[in-house]
Design a protein around this nucleic acid. Structure first.
Length: 281
DNA sequence: CTAAATACCTGATGGC
DNA sequence: TGCCATCAGGTATTTA
């Protein structure tokens, strides 16, 4: 489901809710979420939030970071939450029923709560000190696409030894953090680059254009509250509006908005890419 | 080191 | 109506 703009929208929704009361309790379903060396300590981790004060909410790539302070001035803990393919955050009040596939509830002393809902359970979370998080997948992320660290030079350098398809290179979170299939495919369409081309075949000028286009695309999608293809919702339950501006994603057989040729779908690494053969080379 | 294949899950959709 | 195959916004691990 969620790529950078959707995750950013969730963060903004959480910030807007302005949680201030301490955590009264935490509930965790008995089902596993993401399995892996970094994610394994999920159950113990969530209990550590009890009694803590909700602090700063930020984002790195597709990861949500939420700091929880110790009222006794101890070290802060950070909850890292990844929404996987189907994860969602829901803000609820006392008495409101949890939806199906809820796996975590953080209940605050003001009777509001934050529910993590994830049917496919590809997402996961972990509560730990920052030093522990930085040794996990967060420490391997590439530059933030909305920061100055991401530009044509950085992209050109990162692609120089890669022979994978450029679409797949853009999905690699160590090259650029937060880009997923929709925004990769759309940026390549805007730039007129065939998604199947090998990453190291792009010119420096094309990398300049691509980096700028990726940034613009993400900023625009954030403005519209993300892309809702099927079930994505922000923390306030709102659908995104960016799907109306998609040029090729999910539009196999429809006509290219630029040249009217038929949009094609190809499989790259098992995942669909959409492109216009006439416009993208 | 790169890169490809596979695994992890549920739900929606389309063909027969 | 049911049954089966295919597909979905992502990442971690295994294999080559």
């Amino acid at each position: 489901m969620p790529e950078l703009p959707e995750v950013e929208t969730v963060c903004r929704g959480l910030r807007r809710a302005d949680f201030e009361a301490p955590v009264r309790s935490v509930w965790r379903s008995s089902l596993d979420l993401r399995i892996g060396s970094y994610w394994a300590r999920v159950n113990e981790g969530s209990a550590k939030l009890k009694g803590r004060l909700p602090g700063k909410i930020s984002r790195r790539g597709k990861y949500i970071l939420w700091s929880f302070e110790d009222p006794q001035q101890g070290a802060p803990l950070t909850m890292v939450l990844h929404l996987g393919m189907s994860g969602a955050v829901e803000i609820r009040r006392k008495g409101e029923k949890k939806t199906a596939h809820t796996h975590l509830q953080i209940i605050f002393a003001d009777d509001r709560r934050v529910d993590y809902v994830d049917p496919r359970r590809f997402g996961g979370f972990r509560v730990d000190q920052w030093s522990a998080h930085s040794k996990g997948p967060l420490g391997k992320l590439g530059p933030e696409p909305l920061s100055d660290a991401f530009d044509g030079a950085a992209l050109y350098g990162a692609l120089s030894r890669r022979k994978v398809a450029i679409r797949d290179a853009l999905l690699n979170q160590s090259i650029v953090a937060g880009v997923g299939n929709i925004y990769a495919v759309e940026a390549l369409f805007v730039c007129g680059i065939d998604p199947q081309r090998s990453a190291n075949s792009l010119t420096r000028a094309q990398c300049d254009l691509l980096a700028k286009t990726i940034r613009k695309g993400l900023v625009r999608a954030i403005e519209l509250g993300g892309t809702t293809l099927r079930d994505y919702r922000g923390a306030d339950g709102e659908k995104g509006k960016h799907q109306q501006e998609l040029g090729v994603y999910g539009r196999e057989g429809q006509s290219c908005p630029r040249c009217k040729a038929s949009i094609e779908r190809v499989l790259l690494g098992g995942r669909s890419a959409f492109f216009c053969r006439a416009c993208q080379r």
